[in-house]
Computed example of a mutant assay.
Amino acid sequence: MKVVLSIAGSDSSGGAGIQADLKTMTAHKVYGMTAITALTAQNTTGVTAIMESTPEFLGQQIEACLSDIPCDAAKIGMLPSAEQVKVVHEKLTKFKVKNLVLDPVMVATSGSSLMKNETVEIMAKFLFPISRVITPNIPEAQALTGLTITKREEMEKAAEDLGTKYGCAVLIKGGHSIEDASDVLFDEGKITWFEGKRIDSSNTHGTGCTLSSAIASNLALGKSLEDAIRNAKSYISDAIASGLNLGKGSGPLDHTVNI
């Protein structure tokens, strides 16, 4: 069985973070391991408290996993501190982890901030260059590039700017786009669009976590990056459309929709 490591925060309500990642990995029939960067008290309406793992303990979790069970891919989500970023870089480099999918989680779907501003620059410096692909949404891409993104051409430029600067593939997610829910990939000089229709649903809690872990799962299974994204996008569309309708805010996805 293929193995995927998730390095991310815990969502007490089960819709995002580590919990969403493990559900997604199970749905893709890969074995999921975890290194928890933070505990959060949150639900569909927002995040009320965050307790960070110490950098030392985060490193120990990763070391414990990878020294015993090598992974075929890894996914990185919430990283609250620059010290954590450096530890993650050290461990992933030590164990020569490939197929790294990085979701630069800056703000939760509910609008709650999940990353300190000073951490973003360190994350870009240390982790973007070792990633197979990074998956920012439009607000995150705007923060990373300083560009204003309101149309497809501007999504393409932002993806190309980031990919050229850091030497990694960049998938900018169009879920926040006013046009549609299509995503754009820049990889080794090539632009590829993944078309998608906007689904009329408020059940979008954990969409970024789910997409990035689905891409990592598909890469672990041997899919090309384009096929991994295409498969992941299909999975997440089904999971949103299923409509669990749980909670008083932005509800979670149905991660078991295809099981």
Rank of each mutant, 00 (worst) to 15 (best):
S250K: 14
G206T: 12
S212A: 15
M51A: 14
W193P: 04
A108C: 09
F126I: 02
K23H: 02
A20C: 03
S242N: 14
G189D: 06
K98H: 10
G146T: 13
R198V: 12
T40R: 00
K23R: 07
A82D: 06
G14Q: 08
R132K: 14
A49H: 12
A74S: 09
D11I: 01
A216W: 02
K233S: 03
I130T: 04
L66I: 14
A74L: 05
S201L: 13
S113E: 09
A141Y: 11
G15Q: 03
L225F: 03
A216Q: 01
D187Y: 07
L79P: 02
V4Y: 08
L144T: 13
L114W: 01
V47H: 00
T34Q: 05
E83P: 04
V88G: 01
V4H: 10
A214P: 02
K190S: 09
S212L: 05
I236W: 02
S13K: 04
R198M: 09
I229V: 10
I130K: 01
K94T: 12
A241Q: 15
V88D: 03
G208K: 05
D227W: 00
S53H: 06
A108M: 03
D103V: 08
M123N: 03
L114C: 03
T145P: 05
I134F: 00
D238Y: 11
S6H: 00
A35L: 10
G146K: 10
E153Y: 07
L185H: 04
I138V: 13
S131L: 00
K86D: 13
E188P: 01
A108E: 04
G247P: 11
E156A: 15
P139F: 08
N99H: 11
L221Y: 00
K91S: 11
C209N: 06
G163F: 09
T119Y: 00
S10C: 14
T44N: 05
T54F: 11
A169S: 15
L144E: 10
L100A: 08
D200S: 14
I236D: 03
E179G: 02
N245Y: 13
I215R: 02
T192M: 03
F95T: 10
N137F: 02
S110L: 07
L58V: 12
M123E: 06
L246W: 06
E179H: 07
H176Y: 11
K29Q: 14
T44F: 05
L225V: 04
P139W: 10
D103S: 07
